[in-house]
Nucleic acid binder design. Sequence first.
DNA 1: TGCCGACGTGTCAAGGTGTACATGTGTCTA
DNA 2: TAGACACATGTACACCTTGACACGTCGGCA
Lengths: 181, 181
Amino acid sequence: MSLRHGLLGLLAEGPASGYDLTRRFQETLGPIWPAQHPQIYAELGRLADAGLIEVESRGPRGRKAYGITGAGLDEVRRWLTEGEVDHTLRIEPLLRSVFFWLMAPDDLDAHLEREGRYFAEQANLYREHTTAKDRGDYGDSPQTRSIRIAAEAGVRLFQALADWAEWARAMPPVSDPDRTS
Amino acid sequence: MSLRHGLLGLLAEGPASGYDLTRRFQETLGPIWPAQHPQIYAELGRLADAGLIEVESRGPRGRKAYGITGAGLDEVRRWLTEGEVDHTLRIEPLLRSVFFWLMAPDDLDAHLEREGRYFAEQANLYREHTTAKDRGDYGDSPQTRSIRIAAEAGVRLFQALADWAEWARAMPPVSDPDRTS
DNA sequence: TGCCGACGTGTCAAGGTGTACATGTGTCTA
DNA sequence: TAGACACATGTACACCTTGACACGTCGGCA
């Protein structure tokens, strides 16, 4: 389960509330690992029970601040270096591609055009991140390099998908008897 | 839920048993969408209740042959053309990259080296598929083009990840005070 | 003051997913 | 013919994920 370690990783940057974590999880990790707040609150409870995090204070609006413990830090680090990596590429558009042969040629072309455009947009979005000053949030913090690397992955993967969609559109039917229409 | 449509898509190629579907799901769809047999048998039951597939016969070893119905075919096609695409890139290695800053430089380098090698291997594996005669299974069937397109995605994505890992290894620490050691 | 709306935390039910276990069938071979 | 083994289907349970609902807090404004 990656949610547990994702939360620990975010908390390694500093204390945060469940609400903060939900927003940050959705903003920065959302495109990679979706998580809604019920799941996050539940997991925070379990992490606290396990002693990996602790409630540091109860702020202004009933707001709880969670902080990572020494054991928690050890656990993220252990996961990062020793934890087995799940190499599954869970990408729905890829799953669909296996069944493209079921689509009418025109529908498929329209689909690939739409998808290609979306992927290209996303690639550009992450490209901006890599050149941006909006890294100013972190300045020269240790995270800067990680963020740069993660953004680079976004650029490369989305660009690869955009190119793929274009390539697929251009690829001629292997042997299509309907060509004569 | 993609499992439902994945099964319908596979059954659109022709009748198959739960066992067949499990093997085919794991072999061809496994790297994209993992599914174990209990999940598949359960889903087949639900699909049959919904009238999207039907039990065609009971063969040699208690073997059931499921076949797709007209309604089932309609449903896959509807999903492919109208169904909303989930663009989440659920890729664990990417999630990890956000937390690379928590790793010791040497551990990170070793990790990226290992990952890069794995990704490159996978890319080559799919590359073989794209040039291969082992498409002989399908010959000139309508699926040939889909399979080619899906394999191409495998090549491009894994190559992008391999390049990314190499790039990340080469990327210098942004500003690392420990450099003087 | 009274109400609205954003902030913030939580529960619950339903459904998806994964692991372990249980059962039966046919083939091959010692 | 007994046992081992691959084939084939299924159940049970735990856990993850999602969507809907509920409730308390604070600030602003009519």
